[in-house]
């Protein structure tokens, strides 16, 4: 019987990128199961570099899936990517043609912070009960309302890391409300932006209803997430099961006023959200 090693994985083709806030979503064609692909290696170098040589120094991730979300600086970055496959036998295929892709800038980086809760850092850790004390939330907030006053409260004391929703049996299947009050010294001269960064959501996804000053601003579709943010607080760990999402909404100047302002965030459908941070930013 001839003994021949299994073939090297084929060349990865179809590499494409979708720019997004603080990240670039990469996809490529699956190489299927013959030979079985142990994983794909995504190599990247900053900027537009052409045909760089993949190596350990520019390996940004391994993934079994023919896709990857590369999290980058919120100011927006350009990277050059190449992807190759490794087979079950440990054999390495040829790297794809390079792809240059840029992420979108976030208001967190481009705007001037007016009011924020938490750090925009991919972690829930600064928030109350983080990273895994979710079971305490229903008792601490029996009315399903979280109140947070900017300048008085702190994330560690007054902003629980999860906001539960109707899909959460452990929290009484209620739509929790987070009510956030902050003062503006003067009426805003221009439009602002509201950044809602989430470290994770549940497999249920859902809707985050956002209102400003008592009037609806938007219903944010929550993507199905990793359902791990209730237990894990750091989405920056390589290979994390947490699924971050970024939501940035324009807040017209007319919706804000001098003095007291109020933003409400309600998980109207679906399961909890795990906060990274929220913030109102003036455009610069």
């Amino acid at each position: 019987m001839p003994v021949r090693p299994s073939p090297r994985p084929a060349l990865v083709t179809g590499l494409a990128a979708e720019p997004a806030i603080a990240r670039t979503a990469l996809r490529w064609r699956s190489l299927g199961f013959d030979p079985l692909i142990d994983h794909y290696r995504v190599h990247a170098v900053p900027g537009s570099q052409g045909r760089f040589e993949p190596g350990p120094g520019n390996l940004v991730a391994k993934t079994v899936y023919p896709q990857l979300v590369h999290h980058v600086d919120p100011r927006g970055e350009t990277w050059t990517y190449r992807v190759l496959a490794v087979s079950d036998a440990g054999r390495t295929g040829r790297a794809s043609e390079p792809l240059v892709a840029s992420s979108s800038a976030s208001v967190v980086a481009t705007g001037r912070p007016v009011a924020t809760i938490g750090e925009f850092d991919g972690r829930t850790l600064e928030h109350r009960f983080a990273p895994s004390g979710y079971a305490q939330i229903p008792a601490a907030y029996p009315d399903a309302v979280v109140e947070y006053v900017q300048g008085t409260d702190t994330p560690a004391a007054a902003w629980p890391y999860l906001l539960p929703g109707p899909g959460d049996a452990w929290a009484g299947r209620r739509a929790y409300t987070a009510r956030w009050r902050f003062d503006l010294a003067e009426a805003p001269a221009g439009d602002h932006d509201l950044a809602v960064w989430l470290v994770d959501t549940t497999r249920l996804g859902g809707t985050l209803r956002v209102s400003v000053g008592g009037a609806a601003l938007a219903d944010v579709d929550l993507p199905p997430g990793g359902t791990r943010g209730s237990r894990d607080g750091d989405a920056t760990v390589p290979g994390t099961a947490l699924v971050r999402s970024y939501h940035e909404l324009a807040v017209p100047a007319a919706r804000l006023r001098q003095g007291a302002n109020e933003i409400e965030l309600v998980v109207a459908d679906g399961g909890w959200v795990a906060w990274d941070a929220v913030g109102v930013f003036a455009r610069t």
């Binding site: 699956s30 692909i37 994983h39 993507p223 199905p224 997430g225 359902t227």
Partner: peptide, 19 residues
């Protein structure tokens, strides 16, 4: 998967786990 991946994508993980 119970965690938001489509089936065609998740199949890659199932294949290596079963192997």
């Amino acid at each position: 998967s119970a965690y938001g991946l489509d089936d065609a994508t998740f199949a890659h993980r199932v294949a290596v786990a079963y192997r």
